[in-house]
Amino acid sequence: MDNKPLVLSPSPHLRGRNSIKRDMYLVILALLFPTAGAVYFFGLYVLLMLAVSILSAVLIEYGAKMMRRRPFRMDGSAIVTAILFVLVMPPRSPLWIVVVGSLISIAVAKEMFGGLGHNIFNPALAARAFVTVSFAGALSHWIAPVHSMLADGVTTATPLSESFTYTLSKGELYKALFLGNVSGSAGETSALLILIGGLILIAFRLIKWQVPVFYIGTVALLSWVLGKDPLFQILAGGLFLGAFFMAADYVTTPLTTRGKVIFAVGAGVLVTIIRIYGSMPEGVCYSILLMNAFTPLIDRHVHPRVFGMVKRTKKEVA
């Protein structure tokens, strides 16, 4: 972009080093850990899914920008969405479904709403919900970790599903869940690798630590109150991936820290309710999408402090 347009903007004119591009590449860096885990546990096929997803997402973004007569910028956001989408998919999803997912996430969930910054719903999760409802039959194939690059997967049940059984001791089960040596969506199984990626995000101040802490904490607490094993509930399924990489996304969550905490607690309550009382085994995707819908409402009621204003005391209000 050499022909930079003249930008007029109100003060303050301080410029930080942050830009969308830098942030997005940092997110991609953080995502490399769970992605590497996905390839390690579920084989090279995941890499193929990633390549198809990223390529189709970027092409679709280019096409959508052309249709909307807007300039196309390679800001990395399409790549982040594409990687996240693959990480929440079953590790042997057909490639054509991956392309459909890119179409829904980029063209429908993002560009139709006005592009990056205007989307109401998390694009990767919106696409995940769409393909889940549409192609339930083709996406019900879950495999056990293969630990080899090319081996075929053995069908098995995911930890949260009704038919899940294990022969390990409790401690070994927790260890397997923490390291990621269980069946599940490609990038959701390893809490450890997601935690490393998440800490990078927190270290670079891309996300607030409150979001994952309150989200995961709510699920743990509520599961414990309702008589479920809290440690199992937080380690199994996609809670960690959702907490660090989706519930803390800037665009689709409230602006203020207080708002973000409300969002995280609400999503945590929803996950637990869906898991325990719902007919679906996992609720992370729907919990975040539902709270995305509440984001404007939360923002309306939880105002950020206006710069330079002193907090009004109760006396003054009265």
Binding site: V100, V108, M112, V133, S134, F135, G137, A138
Partner: peptide, 21 residues
């Protein structure tokens, strides 16, 4: 493997919205 979500109420909104646009 049809896009069976289109037969659901949500699909109706999606199709109407897309056609409108």
């Amino acid at each position: 493997n049809p896009v069976s979500v289109l037969m659901l109420p949500m699909g109706a909104f999606l199709v109407v919205g897309t056609l409108l646009a």
